[in-house]
């Protein structure tokens, strides 16, 4: 893969049942490009969790994806309500999801932690009243080792948190 591939997905905020289209399409594309399965799995989880968050919490948004030779980059941008306390939002179990989302199986407060775990780099920027941007980078080579190594340091209190 010589050139960087750039993809953009519009994520509609109206239908929680339909959410997951973009991550499904991206997964297919990565498969066609011959990206290793474990990398695809991690990118898909990052993308799906981010997509669902934009639908549940921000009334939709845009996902920009860049596939380079060494890394896959994802930018999720929305103009939703923003996140007042990012540290709190990143904690496992914190959720403001409403009943509708919970009835469908969302709202465990594990989406952002999953995105962090599955990416090699993640930055959340948010302004209340203006929106949220999530940047993630997933390294294409040796990603499984990187993820499990980082995880041991990130969550010493949850030994069962394996990937």
């Amino acid at each position: 893969m010589e050139d960087t591939i750039k993809l953009t997905y519009e994520i509609s905020g109206s239908d929680l049942l339909q959410a997951g289209e973009a991550s499904g399409l991206l997964k297919l594309r990565l498969k066609q490009l011959g990206i290793p399965q474990e990398v695809i799995r991690r990118v898909s989880i990052c993308m799906y969790e981010g997509e669902i968050n934009m639908v549940i919490h921000a009334n939709g948004g845009t996902a920009d994806v860049e596939i380079g030779a060494d890394d896959i980059f994802i930018w999720l941008k929305d103009t939703g309500p923003g996140i007042p306390d990012i540290v709190k939002a990143m904690a496992e179990g914190f959720s403001t999801a409403g009943k509708k989302a919970r009835d469908l199986g969302f709202g465990a407060g594990m989406g952002l932690p999953n995105m962090k775990r599955c990416s090699d780099e993640m930055t959340v920027t948010s302004t209340v009243g203006h929106g949220t941007t999530v940047f993630m980078r997933v390294h294409i080579g040796k990603s499984a080792d990187v993820a499990s190594g980082r995880l041991l340091h990130a969550s010493p209190a949850t030994p069962g948190y394996d990937i």
């Binding site: 929680l16 049942l17 959410a19 997951g20 399965q37 474990e38 799995r41 989880i45 799906y48 969790e49 469908l104 199986g105 969302f106 709202g107 465990a108 407060g109 594990m110 989406g111 932690p113 999953n114 775990r117 948190y161 394996d162 990937i163």
Partner: peptide, 25 residues
């Protein structure tokens, strides 16, 4: 049944037992 937990714990090749029946499954 909590989808984010499933994504966190489930490994490739696993059988997933759930009582959720919507398309997000």
């Amino acid at each position: 049944d909590l989808l984010s937990r499933v994504m966190c714990r489930m490994k490739p090749g696993h059988i997933w037992v759930t009582i959720m029946s919507n398309q997000n499954v």
